[in-house]
């Protein structure tokens, strides 16, 4: 982010100079942010502000779930089967303790959503984080080293692009089951999920970074660095990386929404997070069984929470893409 704002400020200054505006006096970091295009375009778009608020509410709700949630759905001592299948407030037989009703085991749906969002967001963030690290590294190496290394990395990326993320994740899960057995798999389910989603998302990062690395590597500062004998590895990390990292943030935001959907889908299909530690997708899976008996709230509330979260993240991603790179619009 800092690299970006700095770059934007630099281009601003260049534009000012070109327009004949005298260069502004050196400004502090905060003043620069307050004056930036990014903040301006953020404040101009009501949808973006709204989605940022929604996203923040979800983050806060997920992060502080143990303190905010009225009940702890994992604490067997506090849940009672007598509270099972209570409808949400406003319907007949509802209980004021459970504003969004309860599921088949008497767990509070609202608390379940808070704890579920925690797991969904954790899987989403971690998998995008790992995908970005692997993708940026491989893209950097492919673009900078070139030759056979480039060809091999990009061929792998192409073959992988042939398969949708969900299929790769399912295959990884199947292999994990075969290798670990079902019991161990449940214990590692979280990390298997992170791994399989990261595995299917790195390609986009790698391709983008490779593209901009190809441009950067021929620039004068890289040639100068090479000339004074800085090792290849250091040039890549210290000089090229800061200049190609910009778009990564945009891709990461857009992929966060996708990763959350992928996680939810896998959990819904029953190959993701086990029901003992339900994510939003697992909650919908549990609720799906009760749709026909009229207990719609068990599936619908977590489902809508998921949809709103993903929509907000996607809108933020769209905005970020437009704000950082107006050409892409």
């Amino acid at each position: 982010m800092t690299a970006n704002t700095a770059k934007d400020a630099a281009t601003d200054a260049a534009a000012d100079a070109a327009a004949g505006v005298p260069p502004a006096a050196p400004r502090g970091r905060i003043a620069r942010v307050l004056d930036s295009d990014i903040l301006y375009s953020f404040l101009r778009s009501k949808v973006t502000i709204l989605s940022a608020i929604v996203t923040l509410v979800f983050f806060a709700g997920a992060a502080f779930a143990p303190w905010i949630a009225p009940h702890n759905p994992f604490d067997l001592a506090t849940i009672s089967i007598l509270d099972a299948r209570l409808p949400p407030l406003g319907m007949e037989y509802s209980d004021p303790r459970f504003i969004l009703g309860t599921d088949d085991q008497g767990r509070d749906v609202f608390s379940g959503i808070l704890y579920g969002a925690r797991i969904s967001l954790a899987v989403g963030f971690l998998s995008v984080f790992f995908a970005a690290i692997v993708g940026v590294m491989l893209g950097l190496i492919a673009g900078y080293v070139g030759g056979k290394v480039d060809a091999v990395i990009m061929r792998i990326a192409e073959v992988q692009l042939t398969f949708p993320a969900i299929l790769i994740a399912l295959l990884v899960d199947g292999v994990a089951r075969a290798l670990f057995g079902n019991l161990d798999r449940e214990r590692f389910a979280f990390w298997i999920l992170v791994f399989s989603i990261a595995l299917s998302f790195w390609v986009q990062f790698a391709r983008t970074v490779r593209g901009s690395t190809l441009v950067e590597r021929n620039k004068e500062y890289v040639q100068a660095a090479r000339l004074i004998g800085i090792p290849r590895f250091l040039i890549m990390i210290r000089h090229v990386l800061p200049n190609v990292i910009g778009p990564v943030l945009v891709i990461a935001t857009i992929n966060l929404g996708l990763a959350i959907i992928t996680e939810a889908t896998l959990s819904f299909l029953g190959v993701g997070i086990p029901p003992t530690q339900p994510s939003l997708g697992t909650l919908v899976r549990i609720g799906n069984d009760f749709l026909f008996s009229g207990e719609w709230w068990i599936a619908m509330f977590p489902g809508f929470a998921l949809a709103v979260l993903v929509l907000a993240v996607n809108l933020l991603g769209d905005w970020l893409r437009d704000a950082l790179n107006p050409k892409l619009r």
Binding site: G257, I261, T265, G303
Partner: peptide, 11 residues
């Protein structure tokens, strides 16, 4: 685009 496929189906 934001609604997961499975949730569209359930809806």
């Amino acid at each position: 685009i934001s609604l997961p496929t499975f949730f569209i189906g359930i809806l």
